[in-house]
Design a protein around this nucleic acid. Sequence first.
DNA 1: ATATATCGGTTGCAAGTTGAAACCACAAGA
DNA 2: TCTTGTGGTTTCAACTTGCAACCGATATAT
Lengths: 153, 153
Amino acid sequence: MAKRISHQKSMCGVARPLDAIGDWWSLLIIRDAFDGLRRFGEFQKSLGLAKNILSARLRNLVSHGILDTVPASDGSPYQEYVLTAKGRGLFPVLVALRQWGEEFFFEPGEQHVTLVDKEKGSPVQRLRLLAEDGRLLGPTDTVITFPEAVVAD
Amino acid sequence: MAKRISHQKSMCGVARPLDAIGDWWSLLIIRDAFDGLRRFGEFQKSLGLAKNILSARLRNLVSHGILDTVPASDGSPYQEYVLTAKGRGLFPVLVALRQWGEEFFFEPGEQHVTLVDKEKGSPVQRLRLLAEDGRLLGPTDTVITFPEAVVAD
DNA sequence: ATATATCGGTTGCAAGTTGAAACCACAAGA
DNA sequence: TCTTGTGGTTTCAACTTGCAACCGATATAT
């Protein structure tokens, strides 16, 4: 089942997540879980994937601690799949992906749903990456390394 | 080559991106591109994937307008792969994934590289999602809909 | 009691994808 | 000339995907 990354060098902070959610369907399952879906059949109907695949994906997500199975909630003898804290931690990933999709994958003017602030109904801002001192950071302003203990400038 | 999603409902702002970068390697290639890698051989050495796969992935990324091929830069008769604006737009996605990975995929105390502010060398803050009026938003504070379509309760 | 349906899967199998290794074309160097 | 390095393509066995059929447990209808 595991995609088998044999590469140590790649097992960085980006590669490890991909090992858990790096396939196509998993993120869509998680997105639906954020939307409140919990039952096998709900996911299957929403996503339209084959049941064996859904079964495998759910099992994989549970084994990675992203979803958890809880006995039931409404009488039925089945289980439900709910996001763990780790799973809920994927919220920024979904938002980032969605914002990128909205910016580059829709024609200007093409009608589509978007992420809005529930309280006000107004669109959210873009995700922001801030430095420790509050400066807004872009791709060229960061580097991947061990944080310096340095304080002096 | 395309994973062929036939599901209209799924072709939302999350699914469209996944159609372009939804496989395991593509994001790692893009990550390396952010790190300054440009040449076929550099990607191959860094990632350790088979050359045919790399070739296919690069072609796919170029066809999606995420990478662009430029003739050469240092005399060699080959081409280089550079991020387009669309590709650079993936920066928040990578950051989100990395921050999630750092939070949940490393033992507390396990040594690992992280994203730091290039200027100061200090760790960056977590990505923030802000409402239009500046409130910090979490998973339960947002909903996916058409903007302004919210009904008062 | 019997038939039927629904839910949450598993199993079988055909088709598609992946990836290691071999091969190829071109250019530079010895 | 022969060798090395770069940037791929081709080949082919192994693996993954996904449709469809099946299964067992409950629920509902007759």
